[in-house]
Design a protein around this nucleic acid. Structure first.
Lengths: 399, 399
DNA sequence: GCCAGTTACGAAGGAGCCCATCATTAGTAG
DNA sequence: CTACTAATGATGGGCTCCTTCGTAACTGGC
């Protein structure tokens, strides 16, 4: 009756689990002693030592000099070798290409930005991606061979194979086999994902949504989008289109920031990319026409958000995207409207990761993927570190 | 960075996992031989034997007479002792109380129905529940002490503690501490859940949604509701209100079957509970006014469904509820409308479990709960069968 | 400079779980 | 009655984990 297939466990699987637990405890933390590590993993000290010996041998972990000053014999300290490999997150937007290079801990080592246009031809856009990543690598003194995984986030609907199923924001972007093109560019695993989903992941991993099991991330910017964390996991949906509420005309999400851009308070001749900011700022200063426009914008935003909130009932809603800088203006009406329809309105928070949300989420997804590959999926033992974790594969992570 | 806490594994945990795998393989199947069992669990035969010996000792499994006729030495056969314990699922609707008693395999052994009204007083309704369950027990020759878990499903919003947060269909039902009241009634674990959620679970466990990882269940009846399976698990949401799209006035779901009930084709004097059926039947026969009413009804149903489908992107949408008997009339327009807004419209199927959906889901939830308690949550060994699995607890399963 | 106190390390012994192997057993087929 | 088949049961070995205990390294007081 229960659907999950029965999974019998071998002896070595136990070690796998424990190794993974140790790595998780180590990652992102300062170097830990055996005793602390034993406590955190729930293992005994001798067993922890065994696990550490193995991981040190494989190159995943290294010992660092003990620190003195305490009573008693100084404890050995181990740290995760975050510098053993590197990942890249790329944010491919309509107006920019942003790339960030990080170590296996997710620490960003270099970042590069290139400006593009919505109608930049596809080849030129791919070229900008190439240059952005090359720039990061140069800044960090690395080569493409040092990359273990690359994640690209982009506007539009990304199908499970990493192709752009639909994009209205970037000219001729629909139909591009982005995963395929990037796979030719990088000698490592390539993942492709929708940008709002990556932003949601980033907020959940290292932003204001940490620890929540169900989260709705709202991207409020020139385009409106959403990403969902459900039960502590990024939710993609069967075809990768979870959260694409803009496909419903009623939602009006496809209009993006139009309610702001078209506000009568925008001075003639304002460049379109500055219009919304102007209106939000004017609304903050009490301009009643601007406030009206903001109200209209939030009405649309809130309607789509309400649909998703009532569907998923998340603990948190995160407001992100470039307009999140005007959270003081946007949050109160958004909160009010959600409260009107929810029995228990979710807590509203503002993104703190800002512009880097998408690349950070990409980095996080890449690292998650490597984690899941840390131990040979088919019951093998741990992969030694110096090798590349994957052969060159085109398709996106299934799950 | 990763949020899931590292979980160190003890040696005995391996055995737990393997025992659980064996039970899963055994449950709901005909008696299995050691060889088959070994193959299905991935264990070796000697290990499988060990596990079986233990489970037989604990009373969870028993050996049955070997079957002859094959070449070679007859193999011992083991079966899950489904009759070792019993669970009850209760469907508390506005117009009926339906209870079903099942063994640990989910086989229904007895069923009882009581008729009530939307304005039946709470105490009388609780009395009907009591009577319905007593009836089941009497039919099966059991007593309340034989019950290991009871799940009640009811219309309305059920909070995480098993109280009715809001119900518009049943008079004075809001605010009732159903879990608390039932806990006084039964000397075992009591779970309370929204009825549409249980129906979704049933369809996923033993209905037409088997094997799908993301499913939307639509309850189309006098009231409209929904339940979600996300990533192979019943999704409740932070406050248990996932899928409660009817709270959004725009969805018009709170009107339920009104577009059908109010159709001009309904003859004066038709009892309200028969109106919708009459219209659906007339529409099937080609009555254009009836078809128009159906069109209006489906428009509402489809709008809410689209909101949820675009949010979650499920693989399947299941049409259930009493109107699902008119699926031939309802599905085509529903399919058409979903196709208008979805990049990849989910497959639409009709519920086959019918009226029993909710009680079956309740039985499934109860069994799932017992499964998760099969092995002492805090690393203990397996619970012997003859004891009750739980003390009397009031609150609902958290997860 | 020495000694007590503190903390961590490392080795040894033991238990649990799983696996591979092989002789044995209980049937069927001729 | 014999040959064949397929499952059983017992043995031995390997791996992982745990507990226990003696040893090592460093601090602080005399």
């Amino acid at each position: 009756m229960s659907n999950p297939p029965p999974s019998g466990g071998d002896l070595s699987r136990l070690r796998q689990l424990n190794s993974l637990a140790a790595i998780r405890a180590l990652r992102g933390a300062e170097p830990l002693t055996l005793s602390v590590l034993a406590e955190r993993t729930g293992l005994s000290r001798p067993s922890t030592k065994d696990v550490m010996d193995e991981l040190v041998g494989l190159g995943w972990v290294e010992e660092v000099a003990p620190v003195g000053g305490t009573m008693g014999r100084p404890a050995r300290r181990y740290r995760f070798r975050a510098d053993g490999g590197h990942v890249v997150g790329i944010d491919i937007g309509a107006h920019k290409v942003l790339a960030a290079l990080a170590d296996l801990d997710g620490n960003v080592l270099a970042e590069t930005r290139h400006t593009v246009d919505p109608d930049t031809p596809t080849e030129a856009r791919l070229d900008a991606i190439d240059k952005a990543v090359s720039g990061c690598l140069a800044l960090a003194g690395l080569t493409r061979e040092d990359l273990w995984a690359v994640t690209a986030g982009t506007t539009g609907l990304v199908d499970p194979k990493g192709r752009i199923a639909l994009s209205t924001a970037i000219l001729n972007w629909s139909g591009v086999d982005l995963a395929g093109r990037l796979a030719r560019m990088f000698p490592c695993r390539v993942l492709v994902e929708n940008d709002s989903k990556l932003a949601a992941l980033a907020e959940w991993q290292r932003g204001v949504a940490r620890g929540a099991s169900d989260v709705l991330f709202l991207h409020a910017g020139r385009r409106t989008g959403a990403g969902l964390i459900v039960d502590g996991k990024l939710h993609r949906g069967f075809a990768g289109s979870a959260g694409e509420i803009s496909l419903l005309p009623l939602s009006q999400w496809s209009a993006g920031s139009a309610p702001l851009d078209d506000s009568p308070v925008v001075p003639k001749g304002t460049p379109p990319q500055d219009a919304a900011r102007y209106v939000l700022s004017a609304a903050r200063d009490g301009n009643s026409a601007a406030m009206e426009s903001v109200e209209r914008y939030v009405e649309v935003l809130a309607l789509g958000a309400a649909m998703m909130v009532l569907t998923v009932d998340p603990e948190l809603v995160i407001l992100g995207g470039s307009f999140s800088r005007a959270a003081d203006v946007l949050l109160p009406p958004l909160r009010r409207r959600l409260a009107e329809v929810c029995m228990r309105p979710p807590e509203l928070r503002t993104s703190t990761l800002g512009d880097e949300c998408v690349v950070l989420g990409g980095i996080g997804l890449a690292i998650n993927h490597l984690d899941s590959r840390l131990f040979g999926a088919e019951g093998g033992s741990a992969t030694p570190l110096p090798q590349h974790a994957d052969a060159k594969v085109t398709s996106i992570a299934s799950r």
